[in-house]
């Protein structure tokens, strides 16, 4: 890419795999798990975080020389809270049903550790353009895990994707159901999300053994 130097491109690509905010940095788990029973909610959540983190990183980076370090946490919280209020109001206006499904989890983006973590670790020490790329990269890394988890939970749990049945009809027994396949109700309940993320971590660390933790 001519637009981005190699270093800048790494800011976006690193968090997608080897420095993923969820599986490696262990940030932002809370909201990642609760809303992934449907793919649609996962995608909306990922987009909301993308917006908040991208814009927030730029704002904090622009303000970094003005913020007194003693009260920086409060300043950061105010910036995030403002952005989240925008997201919340937009969702309520244009996708009311969905905002009911996400309920308090939109508000909880404020305390999503990814956002505070990136503000602290990156935006306070780097320029706006780099911070923007870092924000986008980390939000994408977060979104990738959300979409993977949402995909498997909705597919195996309800046999649908984005609410569209893809495996046939369970009532009239068409498609896969005609040969005795059943939806796995276990995937719908919240704890299944933890187990799916656990398996993602397992797969990732088996492929890249440098990531394995010391016991």
């Amino acid at each position: 890419m001519a637009l981005l130097s190699k270093k800048d491109a790494n800011l976006i690509l690193d968090p997608l795999a080897d420095n993923n905010p969820i599986t490696i940095q262990v940030l932002g788990i809370c909201s990642a798990l609760a809303i992934t029973a449907e793919l649609k909610a996962s995608v909306v959540m990922a987009l909301s975080v993308l917006f908040v983190l991208g814009v927030g990183n730029v704002v904090i980076s622009l303000l970094r020389n003005v913020i007194p370090s003693k009260i920086r946490i409060i300043v950061q919280l105010v910036v995030v809270a403002t952005l989240v209020i925008i997201v919340d109001q937009v969702l309520k206006a244009f996708a009311y049903e969905l905002s009911k499904t996400l309920s308090v989890f939109v508000g909880l983006i404020i305390t999503n550790c990814i956002i505070m973590g990136r503000f602290e670790a990156f935006a306070l020490g780097n320029g706006p353009w780099k911070s923007f790329l870092d924000g986008i990269g980390n939000a994408l890394g977060y979104g990738v895990i959300l979409v993977i988890v949402g995909f498997f939970r909705e597919l195996l749990g309800s046999g649908t994707l984005f609410g569209i049945p893809v495996l046939g009809d369970p009532v009239t027994k068409t498609g896969l159901y005609s040969i005795g396949y059943e939806n796995n109700g276990f995937m719908i309940i919240p704890p299944a999300a933890l187990i799916v993320v656990g398996i993602i971590i397992w797969v990732q660390r088996s492929r890249n053994r440098t990531l394995i933790e010391e016991a």
């Binding site: 999300a193 933890l194 187990i195 990732q204 933790e213």
Partner: peptide
């Protein structure tokens, strides 16, 4: 198993406790 050590197994145990 080595790749599950630390974070991975904690997730899975939490899932089981949640169930």
């Amino acid at each position: 198993p080595a790749p599950l050590r630390g974070l991975g197994i904690t997730f899975i145990i939490t899932g089981l406790m949640g169930i």
